[in-house]
Nucleic acid binder design. Structure first.
Lengths: 167, 167
DNA sequence: TATTGTTATACTCTATAACTATA
DNA sequence: TATAGTTATAGAGTATAACAATA
């Protein structure tokens, strides 16, 4: 039920020998897409580590979903799937898991029998404020090398890229 | 063999009705991690669309792998896995697929019987130059809203975040 | 003993297609 | 007919554990 199923244990395989010089990455480090992907991956790792260290289990995607449900109580699964940019069938097992953890509920809409109105449970609300505190400390760490101006610039530039992508 | 198995057909489900106002995303748009993830996702979509439109099939990860093999001919699977930041067991089916497409080869190292020396085939080399042209046009599009100075700044800021992540 | 590659297995994310209930 | 949610299914990415070959 409300038992955190640890998304990725972050345990390591016995440390291998390794060493040697770093590989030649060619043009990769000059490609925006590559740098973006690599950074995203490191940030994901930091997010996971932050939650594991706090004894919580949550992915960035789950956090975003919970925020969306909290801020738009009663929304339908289709609406949520569209907002997340995923197929409605993809959303089903994700909601199943969150519901099994007691964080959110589905209940029939009285106005449209086809839809499920989604909302956080009381436990879900409480959990989300704990999660939000953890996300803030995670954010602080990943942005620790940047001034507040740089953070603003970075977010603005990323948004421009976001809008240009998808020809 | 050398037949591109289209990674994600990018076909769409019959357009649903939708409409309505955009959802409230709360604090999400001010979180670097969220903006990063959303941008990464859009860039991934643009990459996929670029390749599908050209009748090619490749993911950003596969492109990075091929570049690494080309620039470091003869490297072992362990070395490659480390460079990609994935487990050696994860790499096996990825190489199987690329090998089945005739893009790369594994052959026994004469100096260490445990390792496989990796290298691109002649077809792999040719394919990689086609892929590189496509990647450049994709890069041009996603960065089309940015000046060259902004691109440089963006990459530098992302690298700073990359280094700060993983507490 | 340690390392490399492989296999078996398991989870999650992602999708399409088809089904049911509702509109 | 069209839409919402679910289920069945499939493929890719990720991992751990255990095994065989080699060092």
């Amino acid at each position: 039920m409300g038992r955190p199923p640890v998304p990725t244990p972050v345990r390591k395989r016995a440390n291998t020998k390794q060493g040697s010089a770093p590989l030649d990455r060619g043009l990769l480090p000059s490609l925006l897409g590559y740098v973006l992907r690599r950074t995203q991956s490191a940030v994901f790792g930091d997010f996971a580590a932050t939650f594991v260290k706090a004894g919580e289990a949550l992915t960035p995607g789950e956090f975003g979903l919970l925020v969306l449900v909290e801020r738009n109580t009663g929304l339908s699964q289709m609406t949520l799937a569209r907002a997340l940019g995923i197929d409605r069938s993809t959303l089903v097992p994700i909601l199943d898991r969150l519901q099994a953890r007691g964080l959110l509920m589905r209940h029939r809409s009285p106005t449209d029998g086809r839809t499920h109105a989604l909302q956080l449970t009381a436990d879900g609300e409480k959990a989300l404020s704990r999660f939000t505190r953890l996300v803030r400390s995670h954010e602080k760490r990943i942005a620790s090398g940047l001034s507040s101006t740089e953070i603003t610039v970075l977010i603005a530039l990323l948004d421009k890229v976001h809008r240009s992508a998808r020809s």
